[in-house]
Amino acid sequence: MTSLTLENIGISFGGLRALDGVSFTANSGEVTSIIGPNGAGKTTLFNIITGIYQPDIGKVLIDGTDVTGEAPHDLARRGMARTFQNLQIFEQMSALDNVMAGRHLHERRNVLADMFGLPSSRKCNRESAIAAQAALKRVGLGGVANRPAGDLSYGQLKRLEIARALTTEASLILFDEPAAGCNAVESREIDDLISSIASDGAAVILIEHDMRMVMRISSHIIVLDHGRKIAEGTPETVRKSPQVVEAYLGVHGAKEAGAALA
């Protein structure tokens, strides 16, 4: 069981209060979504959780341990993985190598053994390849494992990032707009994938603009506006909150959210 807790997070850029007193908890087995209009502070919050920004005040806790401001690679060691809104793919590497890089923390790291091609290093490589192959299959990219990542389509790259995050065996996975720029079918596939990742027991945190997706797969939604949390709860309660409708969803969005839930 893993949980991520944010306590009273606040950060300012110059005079602008980008986040103010944001608190919530994301539990394993659940999809916790962060939504809000552009400029609400979603990405800033994401960057604080993933260790890119240090908050001015407040704490980030993983299973009760304070991890505020730890470097991204240390957070990975604590079981955190993420995908990127503007894809961060290793384009010159094959799809398989991209995902194998995600096995880094499971590999025994010894540069000399690697250079001399010792059996321990080869065994490590084989195990990583097997795990990576499995992750690629799970996201439906089993057939393109040996293609250079740069040759894949946008939708495939989105899923490649998910496979890479999955293969770390993280217990806490953050998705930054995983369906952005995908068509309806691709978006639906990613929905299902994220739901299944959560039901496997990971704590999933999602930033997404696609309201249908958010309403359909979230167990728990946090709504931000101007750096403050204006609502929190199940999709049902959030959709009906007058504040949320006013700040973000609008009348049309509320309808669409309702349609997704129905």
Binding site: H73, A76, R82, F84, D97, L105, R109, D114, M115, N125
Partner: peptide, 21 residues
Amino acid sequence: SPAGRAMRAVHESDVAAASLG
């Protein structure tokens, strides 16, 4: 090898590499 793969990953995207530990 694993170490070389980590190097190539850092080369192409250090943020992504760091996110993998």
